[in-house]
Design a protein around this nucleic acid. Sequence first.
DNA 1: CAGATCGCTTGACATTTGTCAATCGTGCCT
DNA 2: AGGCACGATTGACAAATGTCAAGCGATCTG
Lengths: 232, 232
Amino acid sequence: MPESLHPDVRALPLFSQIAEDSFQALMRGAYVQNFPPHVELIVEGETSDFLHILLSGTVELFARWNRRETTMALVRPVSTFILAATVKDAPYLMSARTVDKCRIAMIPSQDVREVFDQDAVFARAVVTELAQCYRAVIRAQKDLKLRSSLERLANFLLRRQRGCGGAAEFELGMEKRKLAHLLGMTPENLSRAFRALAPYGVRVEGERIAIDDQPALVRFAKPDPLIDAPDA
Amino acid sequence: MPESLHPDVRALPLFSQIAEDSFQALMRGAYVQNFPPHVELIVEGETSDFLHILLSGTVELFARWNRRETTMALVRPVSTFILAATVKDAPYLMSARTVDKCRIAMIPSQDVREVFDQDAVFARAVVTELAQCYRAVIRAQKDLKLRSSLERLANFLLRRQRGCGGAAEFELGMEKRKLAHLLGMTPENLSRAFRALAPYGVRVEGERIAIDDQPALVRFAKPDPLIDAPDA
DNA sequence: CAGATCGCTTGACATTTGTCAATCGTGCCT
DNA sequence: AGGCACGATTGACAAATGTCAAGCGATCTG
């Protein structure tokens, strides 16, 4: 793996505190690969030979069953994915595909487990990361089971707005069809849901969203830190 | 904490391999408490001062939002819960209540984090346990997003059957209303769903279930190891 | 530039799921 | 025994969500 990529990776919470030789041990076996859009990187059920680190581009984690498919999450750089399968040395539960052009570093799972056993600081980082992932999924599950699709969309917009700096106008950052599957609904329904939020001051122009009456939307969405906080 | 309880706790995957003095360090600050049924042990949003270990009885993990409530999981002895909040030292995302009379051991979160930093074997066990929890929630999420309520019930029955030893007749092991909330539906709907499975040989008598035509139910449910396996 | 492709939108309709109210049955208490 | 409380069930209805088909509009491509 080229030295030039180290800084970005090194800055990840997973690696930022670990000893230099641990980091080198991880990077030694790693390599970087470029992928075109819409490539299936991982097929659920396969064994997890690598920890993946997304350096640029967007990756979609999704799952299939009985000819149905749903989006589980969108991964943005710079971050890792499929850590749980790596540490458990178990088959992937989700598939992954590139959304656009992606640059991805891959660290052999074996190396991750070895460094984990030798470097207590890395071990702590892995646990923190895993706990964070776990809590994120719990939040998603609460979102799914406790809210209607309209409420999910409203809260998603508020989260996204905050993530984009809090301005009244911001970008969705993904295709509407992906958003629909992420929120657990059909594209048709998402379209209708956007219109249903118009009375709360939500305007849509392509991937650009404007929230004219933020307080009204908040009153409707009732965001909750235990579901919507970036981390809590 | 009484010595007599150690063996059960010691046998947990989380503790079975760790050094004796690590184990003693964890048990030193621990204490055991008995709770009557329907007691709220944990309120989501509070800080997590203890790692809980269920010694006997059943605990329900649930979540609330906007006057709605849903069951997230049922915990059976002997196992731990709320590990993620403990290691992250973050607020609980779920509430917990006793279903029946429960005996629960509580280890100060601070001790867990300290032993984690000193005992690499324990660290590895925590990571494995967390990864397992994570994967369980991912499975639950796939179940929710990819299946109808009828399919969820059918697959639940097959999982439960296997968990009970595989006999054609077995116990549900929980109230139907709890099952309904666990599967993400209303009790009324669960009732109708049971009737809808009658053509596949599902008979219901109180909490007792009989599956007369297992192959037919399997054909309908299409169980998938990546969703329904106890561990994979 | 024309045609094709693709994603988004819209309307009509079907299915699923939830809500409300009433009833039934069981276990428990007095 | 009577009656009460509670969970399960059922039916009628309403709301939410999905499906299918058509059309629109932007972008890509030959």
